[in-house]
Amino acid sequence: MGFRHKDIIALKDLTKEEIQLLLDTADSLNEINQRDIKKVPTLRGKTVINLFYEASTRTRTSFEIAAKRLSADTVNITASTSSVVKGETLSDTALNILAMKPDIIVMRHAVSGAHEYLAKRVSCSVINAGDGAHEHPSQGLLDMLTMRQKFGRLDGLKVAIVGDITHSRVARSNIYGLTTMGSQVFLAGPPTMMPIGIERLGNVTVCKDMREAVDQADVVMMLRIQLERQGKTLVPSMREYSRYFGLNPDMLSLAKKDAMVMHPGPINRGVELSSSVADCDQSYILQQVENGVAVRMSMLYHVCGGEPVE
């Protein structure tokens, strides 16, 4: 089967087969990343614009490398250097970019739904590199790819996601993707960070504390606590948050022996993740980053109408 979508905005929109296809392709493309000459001509002549309205190092770099390894031309636009500061609307910015005939716009935006808005107004493909607290599909895909590489499957895995679920687009994309693929998701976090009705998103259980979520888990995914964003009302202090919702070796020992520790980065050492856990053998954080390039190559390839890679 082929990939029928012009855009990739949300994992919620994708079927099991489509997610499988994106992951299978990423696995194949990963081989390119191990070569001496890490470049194939697949997207030669295509133009990819990275339009970033929010600061990002990892995701933007990863998308840029992914595009370059497929021989696409890339241009980066960040909010600080663009006409955003001059008060241009998203719609006008997009139409101006579109006039230069790009094939794909990869966008990160602080407003949930900005990509849906953009995709309705441009003829080129739109890939979501994170919108508000809505979705971050490339992160969800690279997380699933990393899990699948280790366990050979996603079906039946117990995945704990711990932290600020309310404000996390990473959590939502993982919940949609993982439950579509047959995993069980267990959430933990202070009630101030647990949104209404989250358990209705699929095979999702909201746990009363972190121990319950981590108990016998195959994967423990820690979310970045955003010191700048959570303000003063959601938790009393980072110290107390870390005591109840931080991952340390004791807490990790409740999970399965070969459980994976994951984190979308950047990590706050000593807050959501103790340094010893971040650097231990069970930590797959750097492998996540590595897989990010392959997954993004796969996304770029498929929105351009690519056929499954042999």
Binding site: K12, A133, P195, I196
Partner: peptide, 13 residues
């Protein structure tokens, strides 16, 4: 409105 739809859409409720 803060509810299931705001949770799904990732909008502040």
């Amino acid at each position: 409105n803060e509810g299931f739809v705001s949770t799904e859409l990732g909008l502040k409720g």
